[in-house]
Amino acid sequence: MPIPDSRFPIPAVHLSYGLPRAGLPAAASFRRWAEAALRGAKRRRPAELSIRLVDAEEGRELNRAYRGKDYATNVLSFPAELPPGVKLPLIGDLAICAPVVAREAAEQGKPARHHWAHLTVHGVLHLLGYDHIVEAEAEAMEALETRILAGLGIADPYTLPQDV
């Protein structure tokens, strides 16, 4: 659990479900992971975001509508686009596809909870403007994710477990 630090306001994280909650991380976990991402990115202003946990059908519909890709992906980020002069703490919305997260965690041989944490951190960083299209930016974003996750006791998500 991160140590409280008055320099970093606790974010408002709104969670909604497009599928049954059974087997999904608790709302407190998503808040903790989002807070770790905001601290890691050194955001000192208040932040508010929504996270929607979706099934494969909704994930596919969202990915098709917003990215033109006809499959469910792990996380989609929708940064807030506020009108000029509007000063709200909204940073945006995330949609995380539970079946894709579960499948990827199993394929990568990592605990599902760690993958949920990674994708939450990854998505929050996208909301803050981080990206991975250009290689140099991808390296910087991955290094930041790795550092944030290490602070949560989670191994480097970009290093797959080795067979022993």
Rank of each mutant, 00 (worst) to 15 (best):
R44M: 09
R45P: 03
R45M: 07
A47Y: 05
L49H: 05
L49P: 07
S50N: 06
S50C: 06
I51N: 05
R52P: 00
R52H: 11
L53R: 15
V54G: 01
D55C: 04
A56N: 07
E57Y: 12
E58C: 03
G59I: 12
R60Y: 10
R60D: 02
E61P: 01
N63L: 05
N63Q: 13
N63D: 12
A65V: 10
Y66N: 14
R67S: 15
G68H: 10
K69R: 10
Y71M: 10
Y71P: 01
A72R: 12
T73V: 13
V75C: 12
L76A: 13
L76N: 14
L76S: 14
S77E: 14
P79E: 15
P79M: 06
P79I: 10
A80C: 09
E81G: 00
L82D: 11
L82I: 11
P83D: 15
P83W: 10
P83I: 13
P84S: 08
G85T: 13
G85C: 11
V86R: 01
K87W: 07
K87Q: 10
L88A: 14
P89G: 11
P89N: 05
L90Y: 00
L90R: 01
I91W: 06
I91C: 06
L94S: 12
L94F: 06
A95F: 11
A95Q: 13
A95E: 04
I96N: 05
C97N: 13
C97W: 08
A98V: 14
V101P: 07
V101D: 00
R103T: 06
A105Q: 09
A105T: 09
A105Y: 07
A106M: 03
A106S: 11
Q108L: 05
Q108K: 15
G109Y: 11
K110R: 15
K110Y: 01
P111C: 02
A112I: 10
A112M: 04
R113G: 00
H114T: 02
H114I: 00
H114D: 05
H114Y: 02
W116M: 02
A117D: 00
H118G: 01
H118C: 04
H118Q: 02
H118D: 01
